Simulated assay, not measured.
Amino acid sequence: MNGQYYELPQAREAVVQKRRGKLSRGVLFLQDNASVHTARVSRQVLKDTGFSEIDHPPYSPDLAPSDYFLFSNLKKELRGRRFVDDNRMKMAVESHFDCKEKEYFWAV
């Protein structure tokens, strides 16, 4: 995939077909910082469609600890376990975090 293949005109047409009137109110478009999204050609296509782009932060300090610490440890603990229903799974997650000391959540 490269910037020349970026399919925003098709996305714009889909908005026109599926969300009538939405274009007149404006479309906010969120994408990550992948090179195909930041290429000059891609940015021009985005501008031509009339979409407004919401910049994706390169690093979000409020998400990094949970992405790289809390959830990875939770996944390790739950790996291989099977749950008969959602409530049992929720109980296991709550149990995982309830038994942690307050300092556990400060680890980065």
Rank of each mutant, 00 (worst) to 15 (best):
Lys76Thr: 14
Leu74Met: 13
Tyr68Lys: 06
Arg19Ala: 14
Arg43Pro: 00
Thr38Phe: 03
Gln17Ile: 00
Phe29Val: 04
Asn33Gly: 14
Lys75Glu: 12
Val27Ser: 03
Arg20Leu: 10
Pro58Met: 02
Leu8His: 09
Ala34Phe: 05
Ala14Trp: 14
Ala39Ile: 06
Asp55Val: 09
Ile54Leu: 15
Val36Pro: 04
Pro61Trp: 05
Asp48Gln: 14
Ser60Cys: 13
Leu23Cys: 09
Gly21Trp: 01
Ala64Lys: 12
Met1Gln: 08
Val36Glu: 00
Arg12Gly: 04
Gln17Arg: 15
Ser24Gln: 14
Leu8Ser: 02
Pro65Ser: 11
Ala64Ser: 15
Leu23Tyr: 07
Gln17Lys: 15
Phe51Pro: 06
Leu74Ile: 06
Ser42Leu: 08
Tyr59Ile: 05
Asp32Phe: 01
Arg40Asn: 11
Arg19Phe: 15
Leu74Gly: 07
Leu74Thr: 05
Lys18Ser: 11
Gly21Leu: 08
Ala14Cys: 11
Phe29Asp: 02
Ser24Met: 08
Ala14Ser: 10
Ala64Arg: 10
Asp48Glu: 15
Ile54Lys: 05
Val45Trp: 12
Val16Tyr: 01
Arg19Asp: 00
Leu8Thr: 05
Gly21Cys: 10
Leu28Asp: 01
Glu13Phe: 00
Thr49His: 07
Asn2Pro: 03
Tyr6Ala: 05
Ser35Glu: 01
Phe71Cys: 06
Gln31Lys: 00
Ser66Asp: 02
Asp67Tyr: 06
Ala39Trp: 05
Asn73Asp: 08
Val15Trp: 04
Arg12Asn: 07
Gly50Val: 10
Val16Lys: 15
Val15Asn: 05
Lys18Ala: 10
Ser52Trp: 01
Glu53Gln: 13
Gln44Ala: 13
Leu46Gln: 13
Gly26Met: 06
Ala14His: 10
Ala64Trp: 03
Tyr68Val: 04
Ser35Asn: 07
Thr38Leu: 08
Leu8Ile: 12
Thr38Ala: 12
Lys75Asn: 12
Val36Gln: 06
Pro57His: 03
Leu23Trp: 05
Gly26Gln: 09
His56Pro: 02
Asp48Thr: 11
Ser66Cys: 12
Tyr59Lys: 14
Val27Leu: 04
Pro57Gly: 05
Val41Pro: 03
Ala64Tyr: 01
Val16Met: 12
Val36Met: 01
Arg40Phe: 06
Ser35Gly: 08
Lys47Gly: 08
Tyr59Asp: 02
Ser72Asp: 05
Asp67His: 08
Val16Ser: 12
Glu53Tyr: 01
Ala39Arg: 02
Pro9Trp: 03
Tyr59Gln: 12
Arg25Glu: 12
Pro57Trp: 03
Phe71Gln: 08
Ala34Ile: 02
Ile54Val: 15
Arg19Thr: 03
Val15Phe: 13
Arg25Asp: 09
Lys47Asn: 09
Lys76Phe: 04
Val27Pro: 04
Glu7Asp: 10
Gly21Ser: 11
Gly21Val: 06
Val36Ser: 11
Asp55Thr: 13
Met1Arg: 11
Ala14Gln: 11
Phe29Thr: 03
Pro9Cys: 07
Val27His: 01
Ala14Phe: 13
Ser66Asn: 10
Ser72Pro: 00
